[in-house]
Design a protein around this nucleic acid. Structure first.
Lengths: 212, 212
DNA sequence: CCGAATTTAGGTCAATCGTACTAGATATTG
DNA sequence: CAATATCTAGTACGATTGACCTAAATTCGG
């Protein structure tokens, strides 16, 4: 049920090495040429395998695409759920680190180019949409824990909404900072702005919100 | 120099009507099926014209794509540069309106689906990238005027950076609110959060920023 | 109303797409 | 070593793509 269309499981070590190279090449093709040039032949060429060999591991383009998306999502969540944040016990410092990390991540060409492609895909594929949502579902709790630590008086629902608001706001910068984008170099400034702006939201109590 | 690859100028009124219908259909195809299914035949069918007829107005797929992007960008900037904001003289109220308008706009299926497609396109096409940047170049000054009115002590550069930060943050919500997205219905909450968070940034003075 | 400009429709072509198929090479295991 | 599973490569086919071409229909200025 989990792996519907990816037939082969890559049993041998050689097979796993191959699938790894293929997924890496597939990502390269998607990043560099976009999904509309994401063809079996292009991926096979980039991975330096024959089309037949590629199809042995991923019989259809759909199975390859799904595997690639799963691979990317797994990689992304692993990096952000890392142990870096637990190094400092100060919650506000954890927030600063989280914001800086996420914005810094956007500078990588991979993130800059891959995510818009994934978002576009998610608009037309239920699978991609579900996977994307699951990806953010991993990130949000990480941020939610920090928010709760900073202001324990906030309700769980409020924390959930704040996490979503902040994650969404950060993701928006993907289009502007990063590889070849015009606003690269201002990442630190934006990280400071994010800290200042979102810190206010978090520290705000119910009473403050009704007025103005 | 402006219209390199779109050969026909659509002289007659009938021609302008046709090109209008074609661009509308093209947008529909792009929104519904994504750029990777954006074919001359699909657009022709959606516009209920023959492929030959479509190619009379847009000889190549490239020219059609460019014309569509220009059309969308023009439409978008016109709507946001509208006179609504000038109705209220209170700058902080203008900000609230601006944020609410932009976030509300994301609820429209057109915006929700079109923009990720455009961002992905901008990653692989210089033309799309330039047009996208020009689009945001129109929006930023609108916001910059409001920011300057709220806090005239800010330097021009600071206003520019703040405008960019806020626009980017708002755009990020495209992926989450809007047609069929999970966080629709929370638009008002997010608009309030945006107002509260960004208002703090704007009102902050130089002195406040060095500390904390 | 007539001739030129414009608009419409359909057909054709090379290139490329995803996928299926087959046969041989390599590795693994009892 | 034999036999079985795994892997690799090449080819082929039907479908679709963007682009090109021609010819008829329509519109419009003089």
């Amino acid at each position: 049920m989990a792996n519907m269309s990816s037939a082969r499981t890559a049993a041998s070590s050689k097979g796993k090495q191959r699938t790894g190279a293929i997924l890496k090449a597939a990502e390269r093709v998607l990043v560099r040429h976009g999904y509309h040039n994401f063809t079996m032949r292009a991926v096979a060429a980039a991975a330096q395998v024959s089309v037949g060999n590629l199809q042995y591991y991923y019989p259809t383009k759909n199975s390859l695409t799904k595997a690639l998306l799963e691979h990317v999502a797994l990689d992304y969540t692993r990096r952000l759920d890392g142990p870096r944040l637990h190094a400092t016990p100060e919650p506000s410092e954890q927030l600063r680190l989280f914001l800086s990390d996420m914005l810094g991540d956007l500078n990588r060409e991979r993130t800059t180019r891959l995510f818009p492609e994934i978002w576009a895909l998610a608009n037309h594929s239920r699978f991609a949409a579900k996977l994307t949502e699951e990806m953010y579902e991993v990130i949000r709790p990480v941020l939610a824990r920090i928010i709760h630590a900073i202001n324990p008086r906030l309700s769980a629902e409020r924390v959930r909404l704040l996490s979503q608001f902040i994650v969404a706001s950060l993701e928006g910068h993907t289009i502007f900072i990063g590889h070849g984008k015009p606003w690269i170099g201002e990442t630190r400034t934006f990280a400071q702005m994010a800290y200042s702006a979102f810190m206010r939201l978090i520290c705000e109590d119910e009473a403050d919100r009704s007025g103005s």
